[in-house]
């Protein structure tokens, strides 16, 4: 890697060679309201499953946009689909549908790795 003369944080780096943006594109196709997400974190703050696990929809949305789908694959179905996030969302995003669609693609193998 070229030394640009400054430190970089590993977790803040996007490696374009390993991103898979097709998942996010498919998501937008199926649930257009995902595009209006402003990553405010209201969903994660109100989440029942978030009390017990590190399931965090804000983070999942960010990772999804960045094309890093492997990191949230194991936790995507921790959600109880209770709908609190949807009721609280200030932008009216269909959060439950996002979870269901992401889960379907990740676990039913609609998108290959």
């Amino acid at each position: 890697m070229i030394n640009f003369g400054y430190q970089r944080n590993e977790s803040a780096t996007l490696d374009l060679d390993t991103t898979h943006s097709e998942l996010y594109k498919k998501l937008l196709d199926k649930e257009p309201s995902a595009a209006t997400c402003i990553s405010c974190g209201t969903c994660a703050a109100t989440c029942s499953a978030g009390q017990f696990t590190d399931f965090n929809l804000r983070k999942i949305m960010l990772l999804c946009k960045r094309g890093d789908m492997q990191s949230f694959k194991p936790i995507i179905n921790r959600c109880m689909v209770c709908g609190k996030c949807q009721l609280a969302c200030p932008k009216g995003v269909n959060t439950r549908n996002i979870v269901l669609i992401l889960n379907k693609y990740l676990h039913a193998g609609k998108i290959s790795k």
């Binding site: 017990f52 696990t53 179905n77 921790r78 889960n103």
Partner: peptide, 12 residues
């Protein structure tokens, strides 16, 4: 819908 897996709600 295929949402359920065995580890899904092990936090319960």
């Amino acid at each position: 819908v295929t949402f359920h897996t065995d580890q899904q709600y092990d936090y319960l």
